[in-house]
């Protein structure tokens, strides 16, 4: 089997703009807050997944991006659920919710809640995507200072080339203060219509253009 893998679809949300495979699919004025934009995007796309409202902002961003990404392809139909990997990275981990949870354990104002605490782990977003789509394959969450095309392409290519997964949902999801952006994409062994090789160079180009 060839060691070459391909990016077969991608989706990003940044600056109140949803881009699917490079075209702007939905946008609002940049005045709107990030969380309000996510809520209006959820309604616009009629995602109909009530659990969305229980999630923290990081997971909301990951869920919308992955939903829109997976609508553009047939990955969840074409592959066995155990063959699909989810590998995502970010720079802020779960800091948005960490800071929120910290305020609930102040000595004078003590009301820790399990529904907040559970979101103080960045990999919960992998679980949310897995549950939404019934995906049971490889699961890894990485943290880097910034999107690392070299590491991500190398790690994911090694998963596919060593038959540890047949396809991968991967990318970057950040939500904290002014860092709000997502960029998720799918990697498969077949070139698909786009024919974009999954290399560090191609990935850097795609990510920078979002």
């Amino acid at each position: 089997m060839s060691d070459q893998n391909y990016i077969t679809s991608f989706c990003s949300i940044k600056s109140s703009k949803v881009c699917i495979n490079s075209h702007i699919d939905y946008s609002e004025s940049s005045q709107v807050s990030s969380i309000d934009f996510l809520k209006s995007a959820y309604k616009h796309y009629q995602l109909a997944y009530p659990k969305f409202y229980k999630m923290d902002s990081l997971c909301k961003l990951a869920l919308i991006t992955s939903d829109l990404l997976l609508k553009t392809n047939k990955i969840t139909e074409n592959y066995n659920k155990e063959e699909i990997a989810i590998v995502i990275a970010n720079s802020v981990s779960s800091l948005e919710t960490d800071v929120e949870y910290q305020t609930t354990i102040d000595k004078n104002n003590y009301f820790p809640s399990p529904t907040v605490f559970v979101y103080t782990l960045p990999n919960i977003l992998l679980g949310e995507i897995a549950i939404r789509n019934g995906i049971k394959g490889e699961n890894t969450f990485f943290v880097f200072d910034k999107f690392d095309a070299g590491f991500m392409s190398s790690y994911i290519n090694s998963l596919l080339n060593n038959s540890r997964a047949k396809c991968c949902i991967t990318g970057w999801v950040d939500f904290y203060e002014n860092k709000v952006e997502s960029f998720l994409y799918t990697v498969e062994k077949q070139p698909g219509i786009m024919n974009i090789e999954h290399t560090s160079e191609q990935l850097t180009k795609l990510y920078t253009n979002q």
Partner: peptide, 19 residues
């Protein structure tokens, strides 16, 4: 080595152990 997700619940394990 390998990892997996049981795609069941974010704060509780699968009831069947399938993951």
């Amino acid at each position: 080595g390998a990892s997996s997700n049981d795609a069941n619940h974010i704060s509780g394990p699968s009831r069947t152990g399938d993951g």
